[in-house]
Design a protein around this nucleic acid. Structure first.
Lengths: 189, 189
DNA sequence: GAAATTACCGACTGACAGTCGGTTTGTCTA
DNA sequence: TAGACAAACCGACTGTCAGTCGGTAATTTC
């Protein structure tokens, strides 16, 4: 079980890479399985052997993307001791990452409606949202009982500004505004 | 031009009401035009005579919904003199409205991906976002150059908590958290 | 009363996601 | 090492759906 398993894994990876590009370029709806087949050179049967359906393929793309984002933000934050500063650094890193069309289209726009809010939230929990909540807790300026709602609101706010930047807004202004926003929020009242 | 125009308008309204219900119950993708035809008793040709396509129908539904939301929030805020208080009142009203499945599904989940971020933003600008920005400006505690980004972040935050409540989260906790959130944000630094 | 406009009809088309009964090709075991 | 087994891969086929188009009927306009 080696040559064969490897071939399967390689195929899955190839499909994933191509599907990622297509989903980012055209969005979920305007990407046909037909196109994925053409670009990968695979047959219908082969594709459906590896991925249960179009949603499953999208979910795999999303999972890989979220994972990559998580790693890059973790990199940016590494070595920042102060929790509030880490939160700020992480948020700014995330905003800059949102310039990437894959992240914008796949993660910020299509994911909630394709997966449904439930599954989308579950995935976010494992990645960006989870990190954010932990950081917020470490900062210690938010009452325990509001932690969850706060983390949601904060993520919503940051994602929204990320979309704004991604849409061609002024990056510098947005970053300054986000810093200001966070400073106000994280101050002990 | 009366009997005829009236009949047309009545048909459009009937379709709109039924489509609204279907989109809210099943979401955009899982609502087929076929079903709309069955439930309205209309023919294909007639439907496409009134609405250019499925997106156009959805957009009409969204427009009507947003307009209704705007009116209800304006109602809630009417008579509140202090801008900051009005902002708080409006935000809480919005969160409560988000319990409605039509609003949750159509406005918060499907709209961005069906219309595309561009057209979605343009519509929000005319309704909730426009109101929010005006209120924020009136409050006067946010630097002018950050007003736009701030309004976006705030709307993102509020929408997110609205989704949380709509998904069955604790309403009271969420409302308290939102109040706290807004209080921190609106304080002059 | 004729021309124009509007509401409405339904068969048809093309695109697409997903299915299914295969064949081929490595892998494990008796 | 033969033969069972499973995984990778194939492509014709099906059902569903959005959208089109050449109509008819009814009403308004001139």
């Amino acid at each position: 079980m080696n040559l064969k398993a490897d071939r399967g894994a390689a195929t899955r990876e190839r499909v994933l890479a191509i599907a990622t590009r297509l989903f980012a370029e055209r969005g979920y709806d305007d990407t046909s399985i037909e196109t994925v087949l053409q670009e990968t050179g695979l047959s219908r049967g082969a594709l459906y052997h590896h991925y249960a359906g179009k949603d499953a393929l999208f979910e795999a793309v999303l999972e890989a993307t979220e994972s990559a984002i998580g790693a890059r933000i973790a990199d940016a934050v590494r070595g920042v001791a102060d929790p509030a500063a880490a939160l700020r650094t992480g948020a700014l890193a995330w905003i800059r990452l949102a310039g990437d069309p894959v992240i914008r289209r796949v993660v910020l726009i299509d994911a909630p409606s394709v997966l449904g809010w439930e599954r989308w939230r579950a995935m976010e929990e494992r990645y960006s949202f989870g990190m954010l909540k932990a950081a917020l807790k470490a900062a210690g300026t938010v009452p325990r009982e509001h932690l969850d709602v706060y983390a949601h609101m904060l993520l919503g706010a940051i994602n929204e500004s990320a979309l704004l930047v991604a849409r061609g807004g002024a990056t510098a202004t947005a970053e300054a505004a986000v810093e200001d926003f966070l400073n106000r929020l994280l101050k002990t009242p």
